[in-house]
């Protein structure tokens, strides 16, 4: 009895609300005029100027580099730590997990200035390293909360069974545990990567000596007024995100697992 009718008008209205600004930006990114309200002609010039802008390109480079290093390191450390947590007593692991939750629960701003204060306190020089450390700091918790639940569902007896059958501990890990964790480890990496690319507040307070990322670059430009290069940047990022999500969804076994992992993060 379910007819193929459209979703409720309220839902559609929300979708329009959510996507309109972005689509407007994308449209204006092709507009000849600067201010954008009046359509003066189709052009690619803002895109060209974007790619000529050294600052932005450098910022993009830093963004990807930091995201890549941070997420890879965090995934390694996070997975090993999750393994350790699995074998800890509930009391100790509870404490560690609560601490682990702090960067996720605290507002960005508080985390950002606490890190900045620490760096000042330790008289560190602000730059690439301080930025990278900050990104690793908030990425590892995401990996842990992604991998740990999956790990917990694997019976402790499986390692024992593998060794009982003749596998050395490392062999058992590689042949039995890791294959079952593969999905969540990759998810963890992707989530850490995305969080890193997207980050503004923490990066803003922990970077220095000319190291910036996309968000910081946009912020500086936006502070100074409307800049069509930002429109062009938005379009590119929007398309990139859609592209990424489509790829991820094609590779997933089940979308429900995907959504469940993202929910897990949200609800944390």
């Amino acid at each position: 009895m379910k007819k193929k009718r459209m979703p409720h008008w309220l839902v559609l209205l929300l979708l329009v609300f959510l996507y309109m600004p972005i689509l407007v930006l994308i449209t204006y990114s092709f507009n000849e005029g600067r201010t954008g309200a009046k359509w003066t002609g189709f052009t690619f010039k803002w895109y060209i100027e974007l790619f000529r802008d050294r600052n932005i390109l450098r910022a993009m480079g830093y963004t990807v580099l930091i995201a890549f290093i941070a997420s890879t390191l965090s995934t390694l450390v996070g997975t090993v730590t999750a393994w350790g947590i699995r074998y800890m007593k509930r009391n100790t692991s509870g404490l560690l997990l609560t601490i682990n939750d702090l960067p996720l629960l605290n507002p960005d701003l508080v985390t950002a200035i606490s890190l900045m204060s620490l760096y000042i306190f330790l008289k560190m020089r602000f730059g690439f390293m301080t930025l990278l450390l900050a990104h690793i700091m908030f990425s590892i918790p995401y990996v842990i909360i992604t991998v740990l639940p999956v790990l917990r569902r694997i019976s402790k007896h499986q390692m024992e069974a593998a060794m009982d059958l003749g596998a050395r501990p490392v062999e058992a890990l590689l042949k039995v545990i890791l294959p079952q964790l593969k999905q969540s480890i990759i998810s963890g990496w992707l989530i850490a990567f995305t969080m890193s690319i997207d980050d503004f507040v923490i990066s803003f307070f922990t970077t220095g000596s000319g190291v910036s990322n996309i968000s910081i670059a946009v912020f500086s430009m936006a502070r100074r007024g409307i800049n069509p290069k930002i429109n062009a940047l938005s379009s590119i990022m929007f398309v990139a995100v859609i592209f990424l999500l489509l790829i991820i969804n094609k590779n997933r076994k089940s979308r429900k697992e995907d959504l469940a992992i993202e929910e897990n993060i949200l609800l944390h």
Binding site: P21, I22, V24, F200, V218, S234, L244, L245
Partner: peptide, 25 residues
């Protein structure tokens, strides 16, 4: 619908906020 709802969350926060300037200005 859930995917459509989540997509904007992956778009840069700054860009999303900035996107209202050309509309509200």
């Amino acid at each position: 619908l859930m995917l459509l709802l989540m997509l904007p969350m992956w778009i840069n926060f700054l860009l999303k906020t900035y996107a209202w300037r050309p509309i509200l200005g």
